[in-house]
Amino acid sequence: MQKSSRFVFSALCFGFAFLYIPILVLIAFSFNQSAITSVWGGFSLRWYTALFNNEQIIEAALLSLKIAATSATFATILGTMAGLALTQIGRYRGRLIFTGLIAAPLVMPEVITGLSLLLMFVSLQELIGWPLSRGAGTITIAHITFSMAYVAVIVQSRLSSMDQSLQEAAMDLGGRPTQVAFDITLPLIAPSMLSGWLLAFTLSLDDLVIASFTSGAGASTLPMVIFSKIKLGVTPDINALATLIIGTVSIGIMIASWVMFRQSKRN
């Protein structure tokens, strides 16, 4: 008994060490005075100052945030509509196929999604002259396309676990269909829409592959800039940037799980 629990404990420690030591090292070195990554030269915020003076990175970060916020918002609207259509509109022929189709992008390799979107943009340009150039706009559209699927799946799972008669009850009490949507359906799926939005936002911030395919010469997102910089060698200001991203993502995850927790407690 003792022995096995000690084994489990050390396995646990090892697993977590494997996951988190690289991240902790990275965070520690972002506060390193020395410019050499492998030598600890004392505590300093020097790389954070350097980071905030690096216009290229700041610009890329702002662009990434803008794309993430826009694409997450549209993905949430479209994904919610898709989720509603899949669960609410009675039983229609081919509903199962649609459910499968909406989930397919979740498992599609990013390279393929990126490539197919690029091909679409190129042929659209030839056919109707739009989009004139590839950049922030095309990246946003691409991100909406794939993160919408995530939102749809989250909203759909919430809707199908919800008591269908809630909406009928509201209608029975005199609510018109639009009133029922705003009084009952939306408040009840709002938490899953919020977690869908946060997920879409994170996915967009994180994405390198699809953005690289669908971006043009002008626009570079943060992951694209980091990736190109790393090819020239790692500078410690990247550590500072990574630390900030980790901080942001952790806060996002904490909010999302708090929302989910409250929702599950309520049911």
Binding site: D163, S165, L166, E168, A169, A170, M171, D172, L173, G174, G175, R176, Q179, D183, I184, P187, L188, R266, N267
Partner: peptide, 30 residues
């Protein structure tokens, strides 16, 4: 929503995000 009928559902279908009072007043508000 226009029938002179009301129904009590098998699952009760009480609106989970509303208080008892809000649940009961919903129909009159509509």
């Amino acid at each position: 929503y226009d029938r002179p009928i009301n129904m009590m559902f098998q699952s009760y279908a009480v609106f989970p995000h509303m208080t008892v009072e809000q649940n009961i007043s919903y129909g009159l508000k509509k």
